[in-house]
Design a protein around this nucleic acid. Structure first.
Lengths: 157, 157
DNA sequence: TATTGTTATACTCTATAACTATA
DNA sequence: TATAGTTATAGAGTATAACAATA
């Protein structure tokens, strides 16, 4: 289980070192993701909005989006503006509440969301390619334990 | 398509789900860190500059900083401007190259870097508090294997 | 000619506050 | 009075391009 060359795996494995590795991994994953998104003219914030829209059935109110994305309504306006200009989403009046706007994926937006999901799965396969199924399982369990401890952050509903 | 209970811990542990957890963890860690930094009037980008300065012995050229931080020289100018205004760093002329500027930690900057290190260690202890030493070790090893595969990203010099 | 750091300009994400049109 | 979305304004990070001083 212990390797010889690696400082972290050599006995003491101080927790701060492990945390540093975790951050290093996060940075690399985020960089890779940003590059992939940039190739399609998307940013992370805009992609997340597309993604959330793709998760649900129909469209969402900008107000709902601001809750899900955990940002201000003003921020949603900007993201939707950009995505609408790019042809990814469409704004439509809310059927009953004339104050509200319903944001829906366009064909292009739906395709983008779909292909993001595929790319995501492909990336995950690559990232864990050197681990056995059991190892991935162990990693997932430990991740879960860490997350459970940090849980207090309210995320979605 | 979807599993019955917990999709990750129940046998199949699809890799995309694990990746999602990993991102979730990264987001929470980053949020916590940003909050801590904000309490001292720092941002992540500025804190990283302080941190890097604290790692080395003396000061660094802005050019060097742009390499280490992997950003443009222009960006460094802005970060140093802000940190200098806050009293964290000092600009001084380079002893031999009159084009260059050497950025050095002030007393306050050094103190901030030091206390960031302490806080970091404390945070790491909290994050892994629910894992045994062996489990942290296993986690570190698996992290290392994943990182090794993603290694291609050039970091520092 | 190449390099260091700057000014100028621009884009993105984010936030608060004030305002509108509704509810 | 409260809510949905907007305009207005601002700060922060990031980038490219042009430029001055220096190497």
């Amino acid at each position: 289980m212990k390797s010889i060359q690696d400082p972290v795996t050599s006995g003491s494995a101080k927790q701060a070192d492990v945390l540093e590795r975790l951050f290093e991994l996060a940075v690399r994953l985020a960089d890779g993701m940003d590059r992939g998104l940039a190739e399609r003219g998307l940013t992370r914030a805009r992609a997340e909005l597309l993604w959330r829209l793709g998760q649900g059935e129909g469209g969402m109110t900008q107000r709902d989006l601001s809750v899900v994305l955990q940002c201000t309504p003003r921020n949603v306006t900007g993201l939707v503006d950009a995505l609408e200009a790019g042809g990814y989403v469409v704004r439509a009046p809310h059927p009953t509440d004339r104050r509200a706007t319903v944001v829906t994926l366009s064909g292009r937006g739906a395709a983008a969301a779909r292909s993001m999901g595929e790319e995501y799965a492909r990336a995950a396969d690559g990232i864990f390619a050197d681990l056995s199924a059991d190892e991935v399982e162990v990693f997932a369990v430990l991740l879960g334990r860490i997350l459970a401890r940090l849980a207090p952050v309210p995320r979605q509903a």
